[in-house]
Design a protein around this nucleic acid. Structure first.
Length: 865
DNA sequence: ACCTGTGGCGAAACAC
DNA sequence: GTGTTTCGCCAC
């Protein structure tokens, strides 16, 4: 393969420009309006055309549901040549090589935060060839080549125009003007309380305007397709699109529900009303007519939702349409290397969004953590899964097919509308904060979101964006050693828990510890190890770093804002608000902010992040350790008993109210970080291991942390046993009632073992379910059990990919494991299973100071073995 | 092309 | 056999 040549890029560029829509008209749909003036519209996306030297802005008017195209060339001057050589540009002007944007050379003054100096820069083109590869091509390599060819097109992005996606704009006399919604007095007061007298009040107000802008209600269309495949359970290759599309289902939030079916000459049994809801069925004799109708429908919506549409549905439709003789321009889909976008509306692939780890953990509270399939996610979030099939797709009759296909489309829509539109509203809010267009936001990871937000702020404030190499050369040092081999720096502290059962335990924790530390200590890539001599005395405890006393760090400021807005404004509002719709709105804002502030620390420790700065990450954790150690010390001074703590929390045994308030006040005063009561346990059982305990809350809820009985990969029957045991402990009122609890625990444990012995558990209940984190071939260092099982499956022609969850049981054979599909109940290795029962129970029982062997009863054990 | 971090546990595989 | 490494999953 090798690096593509400039000619390759140019060819690609030509192709791209060809696809850029002509003024106001797109073939395949009559006309898209390019209005001269509009009311408040939402920005859906912005794309640039080098040749036309214009931006194409897709706007959506929620009041009438219309999509507008608007062409903007206001910010783009004609390019000019310069006498500066590309080598000189690259070696002297870091901004040139650090981002894309601008179509001309121009002298500008920028602030170089790293050296704390103003510098005169030359802004340079981003060339059209670059836009093809996006950030994938090395600008250092491409610039000289493009220079040689004297070809200068441009490529811009939303953050270069200052346009903010998903925000409201109005077209007035040929210009895009932001629409300012009036801030409620309440919000202004809240901001004033936080920043009233400071010089950042205006900036804070701008942020709040962004967060408070109403979330538009947009028409959304969810789609799913089914393909006739002669081989059951084999997903056809979308690039080849060898088989006909037999069904396309749509479900929209405006009530449109339809399934288009290919008429294969079979009897059309049943009636549409047999389907859930009011779904209409349409039959097409010709596949091309079916596609044409589907394209028409797609074109009439601003948002198209799919589940895995990038890789499959849209990809397949595109190639299938080409195969059927469609003109490219009549297909509303434009494929890029890793996504499928639309000419008119925008496409959200929910699969990619839900795959994002940040979404799973923060926004959806780990509600789905199994395999990421439409079935598992919708079952977890909505309580409804896919239609179960007992025969291959190609053997279904029309009605069965329609029902199956429609369910998928409908589930996709419902996922987007989960919890009163939380998903889509969250996407919009994240898009506004990160300044990423929805299409990119939903397809990229959190580091890209933070990067875009920071770059936007750099540009807005006239800061030079540092080159990663320059940054690393100055800030590559670390001064601590990680506990875990292979890690870069020292992380958090975990207090060794006192083993045993404790009644009446209060947990205190720092509200967003790391973001608070970043804010409070002015941590940012430019302020940690800053160039000023006089700051070197301002040391960060536990490290050799120091932090700037003269300038506010950019990162610190932004994280500080977001943290304050979340902790001081939106979280309280979400708690207090009575009006349901408003409460949900505040909740969405609060969640979106949480995603950003929680990731803000981690990205600086990630070498892939373009502003990678280990001293910032290291200083953050160092100050976190400092805070918790100081707090524990203070707690002891106050006579409080600390029995456990992890990173940002301390567990106090039987504390008094006033001692707690004293500690909280001390933290606020001395550390400047909010310490709060997080929860109160009636009972906590520590096994003696870190990150491993069971707690019963005052209100009766139960917290299980880290115990194997809770892990996703442990067999179902052990989980069941574990649940029984924890519910027994839950009933314990005090130390005395524990005696009886122990007996009961022994009973259920023995029962479970007997059941195992007598083969009363099914293979499924016995199965370990472990995910492959990489392709099978890449397991070279050793062969874990799930890989062994997967390799056996592979021999039977089953395709195995990274991310698949392998279910296997332990058997008495040379390999020790077999995939459930291939195993028989009589070959399971019960000794291995007994060992698992043991560790599960041991973790709980050791907390009670009881030996596992005792529980099982020595005599009964002997008789089994 | 994808990518936020470190600390900790348990099981099995590997190295000696 | 024992000690170390690898892997997956979890806590924060």
């Amino acid at each position: 393969m090798g690096t593509p040549s400039l000619e390759d890029y140019l060819r690609e560029g030509e192709k791209k420009r060809e696809e850029f829509p002509k003024e106001g008209v797109i073939k395949g749909r009559e006309e898209i309006e390019t209005p001269s003036d509009t009311g408040p519209c939402v920005i859906l996306s912005v794309t640039y055309s080098g040749e036309k030297r214009k931006a194409l802005v897709k706007l959506y008017d929620p009041s009438n549901g219309k999509i507008y195209f608007w062409y903007d060339n206001s910010g783009h001057k004609p390019y000019c040549l310069t006498d500066i050589s590309p080598e000189e540009i690259i070696s002297n002007h870091s901004e040139v090589v650090s981002h894309k944007g601008f179509d001309h050379f121009e002298r500008v003054v920028k602030y170089d935060a790293l050296s704390d100096k103003k510098v005169v820069m030359t802004k340079v083109v981003a060339l059209d060839p670059l836009s093809i590869g996006g950030s994938r091509g090395s600008i250092r390599e491409l610039l000289p080549r493009a220079w040689e060819a004297k070809i200068k097109y441009h490529h811009c992005y939303i953050y270069d125009t200052g346009l903010i996606p998903c925000m409201y704009y109005r077209i007035e006399k040929g210009k895009l003007v932001p629409v300012n919604f009036k801030l409620p007095r309440k919000l202004i007061e809240l901001v004033d309380r936080l920043y009233g007298l400071s010089d950042v009040r205006d900036e804070a107000l701008e942020w709040v305007k962004l967060l408070q802008a109403p979330i538009p209600e947009m028409r959304m269309l969810a789609m799913d397709i089914e393909v006739h495949s002669p081989v059951a359970n084999r997903i056809p290759n979308p690039k080849e699109a060898p088989y006909p599309v037999i069904a396309i289902a749509f479900s929209s939030n405006d009530g449109f529900k339809e399934v288009l079916l290919l008429d294969r000459g079979e009897a059309k049994g049943g009636k549409p009303k047999d389907l859930d809801g009011k779904v209409s069925l349409k039959y097409y004799k010709k596949e091309s007519d079916l596609l044409r109708e589907a394209f028409k429908i797609i074109n009439s919506y601003p948002i198209l939702l799919t589940f895995n549409g990038d890789n499959f549905d849209l990809n397949y439709l595109y190639h299938r349409a080409l195969k059927l003789g469609f003109d490219k321009r009549d297909i509303p889909i434009v494929l890029t290397s890793d996504a499928a976008s639309l000419r008119i509306g925008i496409h959200i692939d929910l699969y990619k969004f839900f795959e994002n780890h940040a979404m799973q953990v923060y926004a959806f509270k780990n509600k789905y953590r199994e395999v990421k399939t439409l079935d598992s996610i919708s079952s977890a979030l909505l309580g409804v899964g896919k239609v179960k099939l007992d025969k291959p797709i190609s053997e279904l009759n029309y009605l069965e097919l329609a029902k199956y296909c429609f369910r998928d489309a409908d589930l996709t829509l419902k996922l987007a509308r989960y919890n009163n539109n939380t998903t889509i509203n969250l996407i919009i809010m994240l898009s506004r904060i990160s300044k990423l267009p929805i299409e990119d936001l939903t397809r990229t990871g959190i580091s890209n979101w933070v990067k875009n937000l920071l770059y936007f702020e750099h540009r807005r404030k006239g800061y030079l964006i540092p080159n990663p190499e320059d940054l690393l050369a100055r800030k590559g040092v670390v001064s601590t050693k990680a506990i875990i081999k292979g890690k870069k720096y020292l992380g958090a502290i975990v207090i060794n828990p006192l083993p045993g059962i404790f009644f009446d335990v209060t947990v205190l924790d720092f509200a967003s510890l790391y973001p608070s530390v970043i804010k409070k200590w002015n941590l940012s890539y430019e302020t940690v190890r800053c160039p000023h001599e006089e700051c070197k005395s301002n040391r960060i405890p536990g490290t050799t770093h120091w932090v700037c006393k003269k300038n506010r760090g950019l990162m610190s400021t932004i994280v500080g804002f977001l943290r304050d807005f979340r902790v001081r404004i939106y979280k309280p509002l979400a708690k207090k608000e009575k009006r349901e719709d408003l409460r949900l709105f505040y909740e969405v804002v609060q969640q979106a902010l949480k995603v950003f502030i929680n990731a803000s620390y981690g990205v600086f420790g990630s070498s892939n992040f373009p502003l990678y700065c280990p001293p910032v990450a290291e200083s953050t954790t160092a100050l976190g350790r400092y805070a918790i150690i100081k707090t524990i010390k203070k707690a002891y001074e106050l006579g409080l008993m600390v029995i456990y703590g992890d990173t940002d929390s301390v567990f106090l045994w039987r504390p008094t109210e006033d001692k707690i308030s004293e500690l909280l006040a001390w933290s606020e005063r001395e550390l400047g970080i909010d310490l709060d009561v997080d929860k109160v346990y009636r009972l906590v059982a520590f096994s003696g291991r870190k990150k491993n305990y069971l707690g019963i809350l005052k209100d009766g809820g139960i917290d299980v942390k880290g115990l194997v009985g809770k892990k996703r990969n442990t067999p179902e029957f052990i989980k069941e046993l574990f649940n029984e045991i924890s519910s027994i402990i839950m009933k314990a009122e005090d130390i005395n009632s524990l005696e009886r609890a122990l007996e009961e625990i022994g009973k259920v444990t023995r029962r479970s073992y007997l059941k195992l012995k007598s083969r009363a558990y099914s293979l499924d209940e016995l199965a370990f379910r472990v995910a492959l984190t990489k392709p099978l071939k890449e397991y070279v260092k050793n062969t874990p059990q799930h890989v062994k099982a997967a390799r056996q499956l592979e021999k039977y022609g089953i395709q195995i990919e990274a991310g698949d969850i392998i279910s296997f049981v332990k058997v008495r054979s040379s390999l020790g494991v077999k995939p459930v599909q291939l195993a028989r109940i009589d070959e399971i290795d019960e000794e291995k299973y007994l060992a698992h029962i043991e560790t599960t129970c041991r973790q709980v029982l050791e907390a009670l100071g009881i030996d596992f062997d005792k529980i099982l009863g020595a005599s009964s054990m002997d008789s089994f073995l």
